[in-house]
Design a protein around this nucleic acid. Sequence first.
DNA 1: CTTGAAAAACATGCCGC
DNA 2: GCGGCATGTTTTTCAAG
Lengths: 159, 159
Amino acid sequence: MSRSDTTQPKLDETDRKILRIMQQDATISFERLAKKVNISKTAVWNRIQRLQQSGVIVRQAAIVDGRRAGLQEVFFVTIRTNSHDAGWLENFHRAIQEMPEIQEAHRLAGEIDYLLKVRVPSTAEFDAFYKRLISRISIYNVTSSLSMEVLKEETALPV
Amino acid sequence: MSRSDTTQPKLDETDRKILRIMQQDATISFERLAKKVNISKTAVWNRIQRLQQSGVIVRQAAIVDGRRAGLQEVFFVTIRTNSHDAGWLENFHRAIQEMPEIQEAHRLAGEIDYLLKVRVPSTAEFDAFYKRLISRISIYNVTSSLSMEVLKEETALPV
DNA sequence: CTTGAAAAACATGCCGC
DNA sequence: GCGGCATGTTTTTCAAG
């Protein structure tokens, strides 16, 4: 199952401190990080190594401001479907992975089957995206909601 | 307004290449990055400096796997309200910023007023969060949907 | 924009405790 | 587990074409 392939390494408070700091600034040197969490440089190095190998730290990345990078609009797309066969699913999964405008895709419990977060340069571009989406997959019911205002968009997790 | 305080620096194709690479791996050295985008090390350095100062690159951060870090569950919370006065808004905004479980918050056009993405260790923890939320703000209608499966969760934007 | 140089800061691995 | 030392690498600034 999609939920079971994730082993959970035990994290102590020092690990979580390291994660909190590195989620805000991954350019910090081992030396300064070591001082902040009150262990040696070597120990910090070993812990980060372990956190990376166990997949807790996925990667270190530049966080880009969507609006300033020319991607002004965020839409949320809810999808209800009636075809739940394997072929439809595979097709749907492939479409999601292949369409870079789709930033997030979740299968939900309840009324709505799927929720997508979509980021595009403009509402006109969203319309083009929408047409491409519905031409690729058969959908029973779709609704698209424009985000008028982003109140919070936080990449750092509360570890 | 909340949408107009974002100036948009012009980005050329080299800038976008740099952003694409650094969104995947910010630990790359200037030298290797320079080779990849076919300009000099110094030029890369200057561009990155400019991208950071103009706010296109917000920061460089460790990307953490929520499940492996002990945050197993994702919920989406839709909110409809009937009180739109300034006091309610301020209170709501403060609650959103202060509750670290809330990773994203959007004001939507249409039926739903607000959409929250909430990340918690367990469904029990979500229940506790939910009670805290509705005790802080008066809400006309709320629905919470559990994400059964994360099909895609991409921090890199398609610049 | 480029090359090249140079100092300071840093990463990395090894050593003995 | 720890601290320190040694090596090579990287960052950052600067000069000059």
